[in-house]
Amino acid sequence: MKPKHQRLTLALLALAAIVGATLLAMSALRDQASYFYTPGDAIRDHVEPGRAVRLGGMVAGGSIRRAADGVTIDFVVTDGKQSVPVRFKGIVPDLFKENSGVVAEGAFDAGGTFVADTILAKHDERYMPPQIAGEMHKSESLKK
């Protein structure tokens, strides 16, 4: 192989790798990116069961029920018009309360209940300098 050809081969290989990575990324994104829905959106769009999405809204007043095992809770997320039942097993964040904002990550089951594996509660001290906001990004959600 002449140097010139080798250079071209390398350039093409690099291009192929970049295109390949992009395609791989795009196809994975189509399957894996989780979209943000309000209960109304989710009901209107018929989000398919098992697909990872985020559900945001208010925790409906009086809707929190704790199961006998002490760690599973059921509640209703509402946007004022429509509501969706949510089940979550785990430790809820401090600011998780009825009538307050909540974002749940998870998927719908076949019966239309949203099974959350993460509950993000809105943080009280929202108005903090941006740099801490960056670090705090993690703390805003409480895994599982």
């Binding site: 791989l24 994104l29 399957d31 894996q32 989780s34 979209y35 943000f36 990872a52 990550e105």
Partner: peptide, 23 residues
């Protein structure tokens, strides 16, 4: 990606571990 989607369609989404692990 979330930035691009928001710029193009206004939709909000998050990309998490399932994407990164799979890709």
């Amino acid at each position: 990606y979330p930035l691009g989607i928001e710029a193009l369609t206004g939709g909000k989404l998050s990309v998490g571990p399932p994407y990164f692990n799979a890709a």
